[in-house]
C-alpha cells in the first residue's frame, strides 16, 4: 500500500520536473522579440478593441503607435486626449489635443413627422432594407430604424427608441469610435465636436429632395430654403442640393438658425430652455433633450459664444 503511494508520488514528481525543463527550453527557443514599449502603450489603452482608431484593436494601435515616427493621424477616440497624452508620455513624443467628438443622428423622421408609406417585412437590418428599396417612408434619405448602428456600437451608446423609431445617442457613453457611422447605409450619422458644455447644433436631416417633396415626406425635413444660411453671422452654414449643413468648426452656437428654421430641422442640444420665446414653441426634440438633462447649469444664451471667443 505504502509502496503504491510512494511510487505514484515519485512518478508524478519526476514527470513534473521533466515537463518543466521541456517547457523552459521551448519558451526560450520560440521567444518572439518585441518592442517592450508596445506592452506599455497597450497597458494605458482603454481595451475596448472597438476599431474606432482604424486599427484592428488596441494591440494593433499600440504597435502602430510605437512603429510610426509621430503620433499624427493616430488617435484613440475612446480614450480621447487623456489616453493620447499617456501614450505620448510613454513614447516621449508630442501629441495634438483634439476636440472631443460625439455621434449625431441626422434625421428627424419620427413616426409622427414622417408617415409610413409601406410596411417593411424583411429581416431587421438597415443594410438589407436599403438594398431592397427606398425605405418604408416617403423619404429616401432618412433613417430606416432597424438598428444597424445599435448593433455596431461596442459601448451600448446608441439605441433605437421604439417610440420615435430613431436611434438616440447617449453622449456619456459615446466615444466617437465611428462604428455606427460606418454601419449606417444611409450615411445619416456624423461625428461632430461635442461642443462647449456639450452644446451643439446640427441640421438633423439628410433629405436632398426639393422642398415640396421633402416636406411632403416629412414635416421636419430640411427644405433647402436657405434662411439659415442667410441668418448665420459666421458663414458656418452652406446649402447644397436642397440640404443645409452646419460646419461645426465655424459654428458659434448663436442659435439664430435654430430660430429661423421653418420646419425645425435644426437641432440645438443641451441648451437650457429660453425664458420667454422658446417656451411658447419649443422644438419637441430640444425640449425632450433639455428635460433629459435637468442638472445642467442655467446659463445666459450668449455665454457659450463668449467662452468660445475667450479660448
Amino acid at each position: 500500500m505504502s509502496d503504491t503511494l510512494l511510487f505514484t508520488v515519485l512518478t508524478m514528481a519526476v514527470l513534473g520536473l521533466l515537463l518543466a525543463v521541456v517547457l523552459y527550453f521551448v519558451a526560450k527557443k520560440f521567444r518572439v522579440e518585441e518592442d517592450p514599449r508596445i506592452d506599455e502603450v497597450e497597458s494605458v489603452m482603454p481595451g475596448a478593441n472597438c476599431g474606432g482608431c482604424g486599427f484592428a484593436g488596441c494591440r494593433a494601435f499600440a504597435e502602430n503607435a510605437v512603429m510610426s515616427e509621430t503620433l499624427d493621424g493616430i488617435f484613440c477616440p475612446v480614450g480621447g486626449n487623456a489616453v493620447m497624452k499617456k501614450v505620448a508620455e510613454k513614447l516621449g513624443r508630442e501629441v495634438q489635443e483634439k476636440a472631443p467628438m460625439v455621434a449625431v443622428v441626422r434625421c428627424n423622421g419620427t413616426c409622427e413627422n414622417r408617415p409610413r408609406t409601406s410596411i417593411y417585412d424583411g429581416c431587421a437590418s438597415c443594410k438589407v432594407e436599403n438594398a431592397l428599396y427606398c425605405g418604408d417612408t416617403g423619404c429616401r434619405y432618412g433613417c430606416l430604424g432597424n438598428g444597424d448602428c445599435e448593433r455596431a456600437c461596442p459601448f451600448g451608446a446608441i439605441r433605437v427608441n421604439p417610440a420615435t423609431g430613431l436611434p438616440e445617442v447617449d453622449e456619456n457613453l459615446c466615444t466617437a469610435c465611428g462604428n455606427c457611422v460606418k454601419a449606417c447605409p444611409k450615411g445619416i450619422i456624423e461625428l461632430r465636436t461635442k461642443g462647449p458644455k456639450n452644446r451643439r447644433m446640427y441640421v438633423s436631416c439628410m433629405n436632398r429632395e426639393k422642398g415640396g417633396v421633402a416636406r411632403k415626406a416629412c414635416s421636419a425635413a430640411c427644405i433647402g430654403c436657405r434662411k439659415c444660411e442667410k441668418v448665420c453671422p459666421f458663414g458656418a452654414i452652406t446649402v447644397e442640393d436642397n440640404l443645409s449643413y452646419i460646419d461645426f468648426t465655424k459654428c458659434r452656437l448663436c442659435r439664430k438658425c435654430f430660430d429661423e428654421c421653418p420646419t425645425h430641422a435644426i437641432r440645438a442640444v443641451n441648451f437650457p430652455p429660453r425664458p420667454a420665446k422658446s417656451a411658447a414653441a419649443p422644438a419637441p426634440q430640444t425640449a425632450a433633450e433639455a428635460v433629459e438633462k435637468p442638472g445642467l447649469p442655467k446659463a445666459e444664451p450668449s455665454t457659450p459664444e463668449k467662452k468660445e471667443e475667450q479660448k
Binding site: G122, C123, S125, V128, A131
Partner: peptide
C-alpha cells in the same frame, strides 16, 4: 429565419 436576406447581403 430570414436566411436569404442575410445570405444575399453577405454574398454581395
Amino acid at each position: 429565419i430570414p436566411l436569404l436576406d442575410h445570405i444575399r447581403q453577405a454574398k454581395g
